[in-house]
Amino acid sequence: MASNWDDLKPRVLSAIAMTIIGAFGVIAGGIWFQMLVVFVTAVMVWELWMMIRSDEPTKGMLLAALVASVLSGQIADGTSLGLLLFFVVPIIGATQLKKEQVTFFVFALAIQVAGWGLVHFRMDYGFVWLLWMMSVVIVTDIFGYFAGRTLGGPKFWPKISPKKTWSGTVAGWIGAAVVGYIFTIFTNAGLWIIVISMVISFAGQMGDIGESALKRRMGVKDSSTLIPGHGGLFDRFDAVLGAALFLLLIASVFNVPGVAF
């Protein structure tokens, strides 16, 4: 039983540090949040490259630098034509690989789109809206971690993510519902946000599953070793990517102009 909690201390300390940095960026907004998202996005693309082609780190760093430049330009540009730049890094990176070209293309594209979406969520919908989404993701992870380690039980998808259990997965949904309910008390959001919070929770979990499938395919335990107890930034923000992509899809399909908080 003790081994289940061996990673708790470094995980908690790293989480505290990331929370402080992330909270500053989210609250400050503007250029501060943009720089934070650009940095995290670029590092995740570097980690993606290194998982596929670890023997050529220089190319990975150059791609990361290109991501930072392209994403910064897209944020400043804001036009539909500028969004075509999303394909630059995935295409260039894929052409430099002898295998897993489609894998790199799909994940690199998803990472960039999610990063762009986060910045625009903050600009278009404001601090509270982004705080809600991030709270759902964080609480889902916390509830899922402790419920999974404490209750155990049947695995959610053992071939992809051996540690993820149904107890942890459902606990994450419950935690997300609690977050949604809290936001109905302190904001003007209706009860619908409770259901949406649970759906966002599931989308984040699917982001986690997607990254787990990638690591399993690449034969690696973590995306990198940058964060003690968490692996890499990709390991830490995979759920945020899933949630952001889902919200971006919903906002686009239903032409949501904003959220009434």
Rank of each mutant, 00 (worst) to 15 (best):
R11F: 15
V12L: 14
L13S: 06
S14C: 01
S14W: 11
A15I: 07
A15S: 15
I16S: 01
I16N: 05
A17P: 08
A17W: 03
A17T: 12
M18L: 15
M18E: 04
T19V: 13
I21Y: 07
I21D: 09
I21V: 15
F24E: 06
F24M: 11
G25W: 15
V26M: 09
I27Q: 10
I27C: 03
I27F: 15
I27S: 06
A28K: 13
A28W: 05
A28I: 06
G29V: 00
G29C: 09
G29D: 03
G29W: 07
G30V: 02
W32F: 15
W32I: 00
F33T: 04
F33S: 04
Q34H: 04
M35K: 08
M35W: 08
M35S: 12
M35P: 06
L36K: 01
L36Y: 14
V40K: 03
V40G: 11
V40T: 09
V40R: 11
T41I: 06
A42R: 10
A42Y: 13
V43D: 02
M44D: 06
M44A: 07
V45N: 13
V45P: 02
V45A: 08
V45M: 04
W46S: 00
W46E: 02
E47T: 00
E47S: 00
L48T: 04
L48Y: 15
M50N: 10
M50H: 02
M51F: 13
I52C: 02
I52N: 02
R53H: 10
S54E: 01
D55P: 08
E56L: 00
P57M: 01
P57T: 01
T58H: 09
G60E: 10
L62P: 01
L62Y: 15
L62K: 06
A65M: 15
A65Q: 09
A65R: 12
L66Q: 04
L66G: 01
V67M: 06
V67Q: 03
A68W: 13
S69L: 08
V70E: 05
V70Y: 10
V70N: 07
L71G: 04
L71I: 11
Q74S: 12
Q74V: 05
I75W: 02
I75K: 07
I75L: 03
I75D: 03
A76N: 13
A76E: 14
A76W: 14
D77V: 07
T79H: 14
T79D: 06
T79Q: 03
T79S: 10
S80T: 00
S80K: 05
S80A: 12
L83G: 02
L84F: 13
L84K: 11
L85Y: 15
F86T: 08
F87D: 03
V89W: 09
P90K: 05
I92G: 14
I92M: 05
G93S: 04
T95Q: 03
T95V: 01
Q96P: 03
L97C: 02
L97R: 10
K98G: 03
K99C: 05
K99S: 14
K99Y: 15
E100Q: 05
Q101L: 00
V102P: 02
V102M: 12
F107A: 02
A108G: 06
L109V: 12
L109Q: 13
A110K: 07
A110D: 10
I111W: 14
Q112A: 12
A114M: 07
A114P: 04
A114C: 10
G115H: 04
G115F: 08
G115P: 00
G117I: 05
V119E: 12
V119T: 14
H120L: 10
R122H: 12
M123I: 14
M123R: 13
